[in-house]
């Protein structure tokens, strides 16, 4: 924690800890009042995690902690010791995109792309829990992730398409999804 000492000089007191992020151990030192969001972005430079309010009100900052989607803006970095954190940077395996990343790209489900990381991770957790969710289940699961660009439709379609592909189907997007209705 940073403090102004008696002589006006700044004393530095940082928490020094080991975190597991995207399957790797990282050692990092940061002020203990920093949120996980700040630690990821500022200390680990994993800027794929976004922020839109820092108050739990938008869902941009969602990451997975032990596989569950949570709001990194309301979690303390120091409380993450012993937990596995996954960010959007950890979704692809090597050069292989996660099927969700693939379908989001295909369907233009990432317009500005700012809500995308949080939504991808939330959807990933959903598909691990419910492999073939209904439209309503997807809406429920993503109800905490605001998007101002897409109206969510392409996002919902992309999650469905990824689910089908992950189940081994050779699924293609519906014609209406791409071209609109006749």
């Amino acid at each position: 924690m940073k403090k102004v000492g008696k002589n006006g000089k700044r004393k530095l007191e940082k928490a020094h800890l080991r975190l597991r992020v995207n399957g790797e151990e990282v050692e990092v030192a940061f002020a203990p009042h920093k949120t996980l969001l700040e630690v990821l972005r500022e200390d680990l430079r994993l800027t794929g995690t976004k922020h839109g309010c820092e108050l739990g009100e938008c869902g941009c900052c969602a990451v997975l902690v032990d596989g569950r989607p949570v709001l990194s803006c309301l979690a303390l970095g120091v409380a993450m010791e012993g937990h596995e954190v996954t960010t959007v940077e950890g979704m692809a395996v090597g050069t292989e995109l996660h099927p969700l990343q693939q379908t989001f790209a295909e369907l233009g489900a990432a317009q500005c792309g700012y809500c995308t990381p949080g939504i991808l991770l939330t959807a990933k957790a959903l598909l691990e829990h419910i492999p073939r969710p209904s439209r309503d289940e997807i809406k429920e699961a993503l109800a905490g992730n605001l998007c101002r660009c897409t109206g969510y439709i392409k996002i919902l379609e992309a999650v469905e398409l990824a689910a089908a592909r992950m189940a081994g189907e050779k699924a293609e997007p519906a014609k209406e999804t791409i071209y609109g209705w006749e």
Partner: peptide, 12 residues
Amino acid sequence: MLRLPKFRYLQP
């Protein structure tokens, strides 16, 4: 970024 004020964090 809206940030937390400084505080001491204890984990019993």
